[in-house]
Design a protein around this nucleic acid. Structure first.
Lengths: 224, 224
DNA sequence: ACCTCAATTTAGGCTGGCCTAAATTTTACC
DNA sequence: GGTAAAATTTAGGCCAGCCTAAATTGAGGT
C-alpha cells in the first residue's frame, strides 16, 4: 500500500495507460493500479467527470476514458515523469532501475519553470532512460515503431527500444542479461507451448531465454 | 493562502524558527507563519505532542518547543531545503530570489538517496545561496557568528553573511543594492528616531540607506 | 433464455485537518 | 488590583477521500 493517497494526476495517468489499447479503463484495474478499493475509484471517477471542465468521460459500469483536458494533464505528468527519470540518471547518477519511484514523487512537486530548466539542461530529449517517448512541451508524442518482443517471430532481427519501467526487479534482470535500450538482437527460436523466446544478442555467441512475462516488458523495433 | 495544508514538517520547521531565541513558539505566530487559523494550530500541537515519540512539548497557553525527535526532523528538513536551494542555483541556473518556493515543495518529495546525491554533487556544502548554514548529515550546524545588521553600531566594519530568504521582493531589493552574501561594508551612520542605517559598501563611494525592516533581514559578521 | 458469478456501485461510516464562533485565560495598563 | 484587550482553547461543523458491507447489474456458459 502506498503511504499516501493517489492524486488526481495519478488517476489520470492510470486511465491513460489502461486506455492506450482503445478500450475503457475498468474500475477494478484502476483500483489495482492505484492501490485503493474499487468503491473509491467509482467515487473519484464521478468527481473527475463532473469537474469543470470534465477530465474523464465516465459511463456507469463501463469504465472511463480521458477527455482532451484530462489527456493533457496525463501527458504533462508523463512528460515530467520521464524528464525526471532522465535527469536522475544523467545528472545525479541514478541507475536506470532506481529512478521510477523517485520520479513518481517528484513529478507532483516541480514547477513549470523547473520542468523547462531540466528539459533545457538535458537538451530537450525525446526519450527517457527506458526508451519511452517523452511528450514534447506541446504534449505531442515523438514517434516510435516499438512493439512488444512477445510479437516478434523467430528469425527476425531488431533492436531494443524500451523496457517497461514499473518493476525494478525486472529492470535488474534485464540489465544482468545485457538487454538494454539500443541493443541489437536476433530471435533464434520461439516455442509455442510455454511461449519462450530465444534471443541472440548482437556481439554475443550465447542465446538468452526470455519468458512470456519479460517478453511483454521489452519493446523492440524490428528490421523490415 | 497556500493552496495546500502545511505538513507536519512545516509545523516543526516553523516551531524551530520561532524557538531559536530560546522562547516558546506562540500559537498565533505559528498560525501566521503557516497560513492557518490559530485554532488549527492548537489542534495540531496536541497531536504532535501525543505522537509516539512526541515531537513537541506543548504547554497549554504557553506555546510549544521541539523535543529532540522533533528537532531532528526540523533540522533534516532544513538540510534538504537548503541543499535544494543551492542545487537549484548551481545546477539549474535559478536566481537566488527564485529558489525558496520551489525548495519548499521539493523538500517533501525527495528521498534520502536523492538528498545524499545532491549533497555529493555540490561537494557537501555548508552554506546555501543566501548564506544560511546547511545542517550536516548528522544534523549539526556549521558555526557562524552572524548577527542582524540592525544590531551593528555606527563606525563598525563587517561582511554580509546571509540574508533572510522568505520574501523574494526583499531579495531583489538587496540584489539591486548590491547587498549579497560576501560583500564587505562599513556602517557610516545610525539614526535613532527612524532607525535607519547608512552603509558604505566596499569599493563603492556612495552610502546606501537601509530601513529597519531590511536591517533585520541582513545578517552580518562584524570585524572585532 | 437463464443463471451464476464477477465486476461494479451504493450506502454508511471513519479520519485528518481545516474553519468559525464562543468561551476562557493571560497580559498589560491604569 | 481591576478591567479591557489580546491570545488561546473549546465546541461544533465541513469536506475530501478512503474503507467495508450490501445491493445491483452485465456477461458467459449451458
Amino acid at each position: 500500500m502506498p503511504d499516501t493517497s493517489p492524486s488526481v494526476q495519478d488517476y489520470l495517468k492510470a486511465i491513460y495507460r489502461l486506455t492506450r489499447d482503445g478500450r475503457q479503463a475498468a474500475t477494478n484495474r484502476l483500483a489495482a493500479a492505484l492501490g485503493v478499493a474499487p468503491a473509491s475509484v467509482t467515487g473519484m471517477l464521478k468527481r473527475l467527470a463532473s469537474e469543470q471542465p470534465p477530465l474523464v468521460v465516465y459511463r456507469r459500469r463501463r469504465g472511463a476514458t480521458l477527455t482532451p483536458a484530462g489527456e493533457r494533464i496525463a501527458l504533462a505528468t508523463l512528460r515530467r515523469h520521464r524528464l525526471l527519470e532522465l535527469f536522475l540518471v544523467r545528472v545525479l547518477g541514478y541507475g536506470w532501475d532506481e529512478v521510477h519511484e523517485e520520479a513518481e514523487r517528484l513529478e507532483h512537486a516541480i514547477s513549470a519553470r523547473m520542468e523547462a530548466r531540466i528539459a533545457r539542461l538535458l537538451g530537450e530529449p525525446a526519450f527517457d532512460p527506458h526508451g519511452h517517448p517523452i511528450p514534447a512541451p506541446d504534449l505531442t508524442l515523438p514517434l516510435s515503431r516499438a512493439v512488444p518482443l512477445a510479437q516478434a517471430a523467430a528469425g527476425v532481427r531488431g533492436r531494443i527500444v524500451s523496457v517497461s519501467d514499473a518493476d525494478p526487479a525486472v529492470l535488474r534482470r534485464l540489465s544482468a542479461l545485457g538487454l538494454l535500450p539500443g541493443v541489437g538482437f536476433t530471435v533464434v527460436q520461439r516455442t509455442a507451448g510455454d511461449n519462450l523466446a530465444y534471443l541472440r544478442v548482437e556481439g554475443s555467441a550465447e542465446a538468452v531465454v526470455i519468458g512470456p512475462a519479460l517478453a511483454e516488458a521489452i519493446f523492440v523495433e524490428l528490421d523490415t
